[in-house]
Design a binder for these strands. Structure first.
Length: 185
DNA sequence: CGCCTTTGACCCGCGC
DNA sequence: GCGCGGGTCAAAGGCG
């Protein structure tokens, strides 16, 4: 699959299905939540509920550095099609595994996953995202920097990248524009 | 009525 | 071998 990475694809397709349809074109079902030691904020675990056999998992946790933001980590590949066209572009972006930011409390507390996911490849600092099979886990990328590097640190380093900041701002902005009631601080 | 969210407990793996 | 942490499963409740 070709990597069609485009932030503008943050098209928040408000699928009129129910309300559990996330903007990335997939339905996610929460199956657990846990507070980790590294980050006092609870980490939520989601699975793709569109296909029972879909191995994709998603972890969402508030960014320790700035709790207004959420960090989403995708694990695995969807073995089925997305729900809508936007899902396809995201599907290619999310295909292997990646971490992304979700805009702050732009919606109801527990509906946060209904926001947008920003592909980190846009940061320009980690263009090599989709390898054949070696680095399916995001941690693989962190290893390139430091074995001890944690997600939060990785994220922090990314924010120092002006390209990433720009991409993040763009994504957040587009999400605001798209959301019914923006509540960004 | 069906699906999703929430919470607690249990299990597995890793490090000391 | 023990302890700690992370991740997953299962049951109950709530909402659409």
């Amino acid at each position: 699959m070709d990597a069609h990475v485009d932030t503008s694809t943050t098209t928040t397709t408000t699928t009129p299905t129910t309300q559990k349809v996330v903007k990335d074109g997939y339905q996610w079902r929460k199956y657990g939540q846990k507070v980790t030691k590294d980050n006092p904020s609870p980490r939520a675990y989601f699975r793709c509920s569109m296909a029972p056999s879909c191995p994709v998992k998603k972890k969402v946790q508030r960014w320790m550095e700035d709790k207004r933001y959420l960090v989403a980590t995708y694990d695995g590949e969807h073995n089925h099609d997305a729900d809508c066209s936007i899902g396809r572009s995201f599907a290619s972006a999310n295909s292997s595994s990646m971490a992304g930011f979700l805009s702050p409390e732009t919606s109801n507390t527990s509906r946060f996953q209904s926001n947008i996911a920003l592909d980190l490849t846009l940061s320009g600092s980690s263009q090599e995202k989709k390898r054949p099979s070696s680095s399916r886990d995001p941690m693989e990328d962190y290893d390139h920097h430091n074995k001890k590097m944690k997600i939060e640190e990785y994220v922090a380093s990314l924010t120092k990248d002006p390209n990433f900041t720009t991409a993040l701002a763009a994504a957040v902005a587009s999400s605001i524009t798209d959301l019914p009631k923006p509540t960004i601080l």
